[in-house]
Design a protein around this nucleic acid. Sequence first.
DNA 1: AGCGATTATATCGTACGCGATACAAATGTA
DNA 2: TACATTTGTATCGCGTACGATATAATCGCT
Lengths: 151, 151
Amino acid sequence: MDNLQLSNQVCFPIYSASRLITKAYKPFLDEMGITYPQYLVLMVLWENDQLTVNQITEKLLLNTNTISPLLKRMEKFELIKRTRSAEDERSVIVQLTSKGKRLKDKAKPIPEQLLKILLNDNIELSEVLQLKEMLNHWIEILTENNKNKTA
Amino acid sequence: MDNLQLSNQVCFPIYSASRLITKAYKPFLDEMGITYPQYLVLMVLWENDQLTVNQITEKLLLNTNTISPLLKRMEKFELIKRTRSAEDERSVIVQLTSKGKRLKDKAKPIPEQLLKILLNDNIELSEVLQLKEMLNHWIEILTENNKNKTA
DNA sequence: AGCGATTATATCGTACGCGATACAAATGTA
DNA sequence: TACATTTGTATCGCGTACGATATAATCGCT
């Protein structure tokens, strides 16, 4: 078997699926005026009243050089506000504005609608959950692999 | 269950895994002086002597507005050459240069090394293959879903 | 043959991702 | 208490992604 044949790659399907999923989200997120990465930030803030920039990067597995400008855009759209922490002047605390909080209601039906796209076409819910478990295992390994490199 | 909790999302693991995999490739691709998307283009050209821009977009599920500038960069690095088709002046034929062809040898060990990162940490090969099948199914559905939107 | 519709590619603008770097605040240590 | 080190964010530069738009070549139909 030719390892360098595209059809034999596992990574390419992940790469493609990721882009296609973001695209599937788009019509829903467009209505809210946000992008997929911004949606992720909102999700972690709907779960947590306030987070530092660092805490957000840890939850989303992104770096500050991605998150910082992203948060600035979100602040401009008045979805969040950023404040320097009083205890540690280095930290920036991120909180939702009322506009950001209100978006949660609008976002509620999204996960179900995305699932419907997949489930309607004979994909079993169990399969979806299995996929999630497998990928989470991969992420763990790849995150570890990444740490080893920088250490 | 709260559908808007990050941990309950399936799409987030795909998004994260995709980025982490690209990062895992980086040290290998850096040695060749290319990026992951450029590596994908090389792969389809190692399989096919010549392809039009359109044929590449179909194989990689990317649009011309991504591929066009990408190919231009690859041409500047002398990995490929682009020629207008004689039969159809609209089409651009993409072919590997000798430098592009030579890179195939250097790339040969990459898939195995990537797999090793995953398999070393008690992921079964069967699991990898299963994941691939599942994602290909998803990609089919999501591609279809996308077509319906533009139609 | 003439001409509107389609097709193949390219360009523009915006938003990520990320390696490298910068910088101020906090921490550790002699 | 000085001062090197670490930590938390931000900035820069480059390379994707992608919606919208542009343009030339070809096709289809009369």
